[in-house]
């Protein structure tokens, strides 16, 4: 029984939260890695793109709620999500046209695009603040749990409960669907292959008749969609606060680099590696150890690092991977 209890506690406190968080990071890292692979720079504005998309989605959600429209047990935000994606796509296409395209045509060094993305980051940050302010917003509605602790205990008779939030399940399902769709698109369709070709060799893609501007537009639209979905799922699961979306840039970059920048498969793996390490290292294992070794009475919480240092975990993983495998877990394009 104790082993079962330990397993349930592990699932409840480590596995499920880490899986949901990993899926959110993976979606974010996919966007970063696509931009890096195709537009050839790290987009510092990605966190704020996520925040903007989420802010729009929240505003539309409020509108729908005011009209009395809901999705029953599912969060209303899902209905608003397409609007959020569309608005974000329009915004990033507009910034590309107004900012990035000029440097691309000039064949300017990529570092200038990085600098420009810092400028765009300020703009989007300000825009999101204008739209929705800086306060924390909770916008998850509908059924809160798929499985809640009390029902689980009653059902199984275990001392330890298991909760699965709707948002967590939703995150995993949506992430799987999105990733499947993205890979199908990149590997099976002509436009997706054109994107990969452009990423591999811009000149040859041009000479093969691929329209670079079309590839770039497509990339931005996909990145905007990924960012908005990641942002909304993260916000549903935790809460929406613009500054957190700025801070999540570090684990997202870490995930993308750990997996190998420019490699979509790597971004997904990197997202889960970072998320699982963060949760595992900042979780107090005392409870689980108590089930497994009933006789042992340690005097601490068996927590390797405080949760405040979760960013340190992404950082250390990043450094370790770079030291031992400079191209990332899956071969990226950077080295």
């Amino acid at each position: 029984m104790d082993i079962l209890n330990a397993l349930v506690a592990f699932l409840n406190f480590v596995f499920i939260p880490a899986a949901a968080y990993g899926a959110q990071l993976a979606l974010g890292a996919l966007g970063v890695t696509l931009i890096y692979g195709i537009l050839r720079f790290s987009n510092f504005a990605h966190g704020d793109t996520m925040a903007f998309g989420t802010a729009i989605t929240i505003l539309v959600t409020w509108g729908l709620q005011a009209l009395g429209i809901s999705l029953g047990p599912l969060p209303t935000a899902l209905l608003a999500l397409p609007v959020g994606i569309a608005a974000t796509a329009l915004l990033v296409l507009a910034t590309d046209r107004a900012v990035y395209r000029f440097y691309r045509v000039q064949k300017a060094a990529p570092i200038i695009l990085v600098m420009a993305s810092v400028g765009v980051m300020f703009l989007m940050n300000g825009l999101t603040r204008l739209l929705i302010g800086v306060d924390e917003q909770r916008f998850a509605d509908g059924e809160r749990f798929v499985i809640n602790v009390r029902d689980f205990k009653a059902m199984t008779g275990l001392a330890e409960g298991l909760a699965l939030k709707t948002t967590q399940l939703l995150t995993l399902v949506i992430a799987i669907l999105v990733v499947w769709a993205l890979f199908w698109f990149l590997n099976r369709t002509k436009s997706g292959k054109a994107m990969r070709a452009y990423s591999d060799n811009e000149d040859l893609a041009l000479l093969s008749g691929i329209d670079p501007e079309k590839v770039v537009r497509l990339t931005w639209i996909i990145a905007a969609a990924l960012a908005t979905i990641a942002g909304v799922l993260y916000g549903l699961d935790k809460a929406f606060k613009p500054f957190n979306y700025f801070q999540i840039l570090l684990p997202i970059f870490a995930a993308a680099i750990v997996g190998g920048l420019g490699n979509p498969l790597g971004a997904i793996a990197g997202g889960f590696v970072v998320a699982f390490s963060e949760v595992a290292i900042t979780y107090p294992w005392l409870k689980i150890a108590g089930y497994l070794f009933p006789g042992w009475q340690p005097d601490g919480l068996l927590q390797l690092l405080g949760t405040e240092y979760k960013f340190a975990v992404s950082f250390v993983i990043l450094i370790v991977v770079l030291l031992f495998k400079p191209t990332g877990l899956f071969r990226g394009k950077s080295v």
Binding site: Y36, G37, R40, F41, S42, Y103, V105, Q106, K107, A108, A109, P110, I111, I112, L113, V114, M115, S199, D200, N201, E202, D203, A205, L206, L207, P212, E213, F253, I257, L261, G262, K333, S334, V335
Partner: peptide
């Protein structure tokens, strides 16, 4: 371009922000 001259070779070594791999040289416009 002027933009390139302005920054010279700065920052283009940092693989965590820039990706020189596969960059084009032909003016597609």
């Amino acid at each position: 371009s002027d933009q390139d001259q302005a920054f010279g070779n700065r920052g283009n070594r940092d693989a965590s922000v820039v990706n020189p791999h596969g960059r084009g040289t032909i003016d597609g416009t």
